[in-house]
Write a protein that binds this DNA or RNA. Structure first.
Lengths: 203, 203
DNA sequence: TTTTATATACCGACCGGTCGGTATTTATTG
DNA sequence: CAATAAATACCGACCGGTCGGTATATAAAA
């Protein structure tokens, strides 16, 4: 019957917090506000979470885990590595549309990570996994002959930097461009410098 | 002669605020704390600035103006456009060293810009100038024959995205890499996709 | 003295978190 | 099954403390 009532309350708190954090930022969002939006009392809030920061951290972990899953899923859906990367860039359009207005929480995550050691720890490990993941893809691309013999770590870093920069711009200036398209163009241009062309294949 | 005593107070407040914001973030920094660090009373603070946010905004404007000047200065110091861009990337090393520990304020700026309309206005205009500036450089590069016929706007966007992403990473994880070097490698890789000739010796 | 500049004391709003108590669900027992 | 006990989930008033900002006093300069 009421099985999982507590669980549902937890989820409602998390959802409300996510929305508030995205709209106003972590500090500007009061616990009372989250509770009101979740239709839950303050008592319930502190029954399910020890502190406000705990909510933030759980949100962060879910977000990072979801991102990792999505990346991994797209990894094996394309024939060649450049294709896979372009396909990832292609999904950016949908991601931006879906996440519109919810994106500022990304900034919040970064900002907290730069200062709070706990948040930093929770962020940096997935981040390094992503970097290794991309480096692995580049390596595979070189092995399959679709990419030049670039340094995989450098290329992965360049790719990640661009991705981060694009997300940031889309966050701050969502109406400034068709970011979905910009992502494809930008990544495409970066890949042009890594693709294996006949001119530079054998030196 | 006490000429400029008020001016010096102002500067001390700004410097103290910059340091505090960088170390703890905007919200976590109290006016009292800024005053203490500046060796100034709260009365002096609110004599020179109407609100805490006004301090933040002036800091932001100075920062953006300084960045613009530095970019413009480097524009005409190189023979070709790719050279100029690589030279800009080269200065990143110094910038990161100098700004070490002062970089988190960049995140603060972005975070506020995503939410506060006034901060957004103060940020977006310089940002668009930078984008136009880079687009102009790319165009010049094409004209001088050192770059392929890429879309200048797209290329400028890619360049800016990468720059933003790199600064962000260096902010969150300053010890995670030799960012100065990473900047050069990443920008170099992007330029490889835009260069006209393939004289690059891939390492 | 009038104006400018800095200092001190203070206010009201607000915030994260606590606490004593209540409702609801689950387990136990007759 | 019903009755009861125990554990779980939730409520909302309240507290200590902080914060941005103000009011007012004082010192220096013009």
């Amino acid at each position: 019957m009421m099985r999982g009532r507590a669980e549902e309350t937890r989820e409602r708190i998390l959802a409300a917090a996510e929305e508030c954090f995205a709209r106003q930022g972590y500090d500007a969002t009061g616990v009372a506000e989250i509770c009101e939006q979740a239709g839950v009392s303050k008592g319930a809030f502190f029954y399910h979470f020890p502190t406000k920061q705990a909510v933030f951290l759980e949100l962060l972990e879910r977000w990072l885990a979801g991102l990792g899953e999505r990346l991994a899923a797209l990894r094996f859906g394309a024939a060649t590595v450049p294709d896979a990367l372009m396909q990832m860039a292609g999904t950016a359009q949908q991601v931006f549309e879906i996440a519109r207005g919810k994106l500022p929480i990304f900034l919040e995550f970064m900002g907290q990570a730069a200062r709070d050691p706990r948040v930093w720890q929770a962020t940096i490990n997935p981040y390094r996994r992503y970097r290794a993941f991309f480096a692995g893809m580049i390596e595979a691309g070189i092995a399959e002959g679709s990419l030049r013999r670039v340094d995989p770590d450098v290329a992965a870093n360049a790719l990640l930097s661009m991705a981060i920069g694009l997300v940031l711009q889309a966050t701050v200036d969502p109406d400034g461009a068709d970011w979905g398209q910009v992502v494809q163009q930008s990544v495409g241009m970066l890949l042009d410098g890594m693709r294996c062309t006949h001119e530079n294949l054998s030196g």
